[in-house]
């Protein structure tokens, strides 16, 4: 049953991807990428990866379309075709050869869902056995990402932080770039129904974000997803009321502090563990018992992740919006 659904979803993914590649109209590509994101989230869920699907839901549905449109407002909606024809033959050959290699390689892969596949026999059984002992939390994914793979997640947080700084250094300070337009023309504040419905939903989105943040050890979710959800709520406010109003609610200075303090909190937990006699990011020493220490550590680093992701996503939105008047 699930396999058949998966085949259909995969088919739609391929069709959407081909349509995205062949479309010359960038607005159409943005719309299709929204569909692609929805489909891939359904596919992740079919593969039982609820945490990844929630990330895709939070980022894909709420934020990436907004940011793509913000970028699109800065350029032409038509893709330029100049110079493409010349290299087409070479790229065709490269792509064809790569495809043949990849298809050939798939014959050596274990069957889909094979219990003896290396991925199910390598470290996964160890994680499944030890997460309840070491951390006593039901969501094994959070245990792996937060504790066993704490270094990787630390790296990811710094990648997000760096991406925020990169966007700012290319697009410039949102405050300096502001285009001043008359107050009556900002946002969707004259469209009564979107404004009312949106304003009603914003508290619930933030509440749900907080639930995802602090319930991440028990159900799908965690800092990344929660950060994206809260950022989506603020971006919704900015779209409805105008970007300047959103900047009054959370000024740029606060966003900069959020970006940096999240990464700092994560690293700080690692250093705290070091000072209390453990290894870097070994949370067992943080509290009286190792299990409680692990739980505190995961809670704190997830808060750091959430802060940085929220700050960076809202900052990127402001950086685009200030230039494109979105």
């Amino acid at each position: 049953m699930v396999e058949i659904l998966n085949i259909f979803i995969m088919l739609m993914l391929v069709i959407t991807a081909l349509a995205m590649v062949s479309s010359r109209h960038l607005f159409v590509t943005v719309m299709l990428s929204g569909i692609f994101s929805l489909l891939i989230a359904a596919s992740f869920l079919l593969l039982d990866a609820a945490d990844v699907a929630l990330t895709e839901a939070a980022v894909g549905a709420g934020i990436s379309t907004v940011l793509f449109l913000g970028a699109l407002a800065l350029m032409d909606v038509e893709e330029t075709t100049r110079g493409v024809r010349r290299i087409r033959m070479v790229s065709l050959i490269v792509v064809a050869v790569t495809t043949i290699f990849i298809v050939h390689a798939t014959f050596y892969m274990p069957a889909f869902g094979d219990i003896n596949a290396p991925i199910h026999q390598h470290v996964a059984p160890w994680y499944i056995q030890h997460v309840p002992i070491h951390m006593d939390i039901p969501n094994i994914v959070t245990g792996i990402l937060g504790s066993y793979r704490g270094y990787d997640t630390l790296g990811e947080v710094f990648v997000v932080f760096t991406a925020g700084i990169g966007v700012l250094s290319i697009l410039g300070d949102p405050i300096k770039n502001r285009q001043h337009r008359p107050a009556h023309n900002r946002g969707l504040r004259h469209y009564l129904i979107p404004r009312l419905v949106g304003r009603m939903l914003i508290p619930f989105i933030i509440l749900f974000g907080l639930y995802v943040q602090f319930h991440g050890e028990y159900s799908p979710g965690g800092g990344f997803q929660a950060g994206a959800l809260v950022a989506a709520a603020i971006i919704l406010y900015a779209l409805l009321e105008g970007e300047d109003k959103a900047l009054q609610v959370i000024p740029m200075r606060v966003l900069y502090i959020m970006m940096a303090s999240g990464a700092l909190l994560y690293g700080g937990v690692g250093v705290a563990a070091l000072l209390m006699g453990g290894n870097f990011l070994d949370y067992s020493v943080l509290a009286s018992t190792p299990v409680a220490g692990q739980q505190w550590g995961i809670l704190l680093i997830e808060m750091g992740v959430g802060l940085t992701v929220t700050g960076v996503l809202i900052t990127i939105f402001h950086a685009f919006a200030a230039r494109s008047n979105l």
Binding site: M31, G34, A61, G62, I63, T65, V66, L69, G70, L72, A73, G187, L188, Y191, P194, G198, A232, I235, L236, L239, L240, L326
Partner: peptide, 9 residues
């Protein structure tokens, strides 16, 4: 939210 962004766009 994406649809609102399209409206604004």
């Amino acid at each position: 939210i994406g649809v609102f962004a399209v409206l604004e766009f």
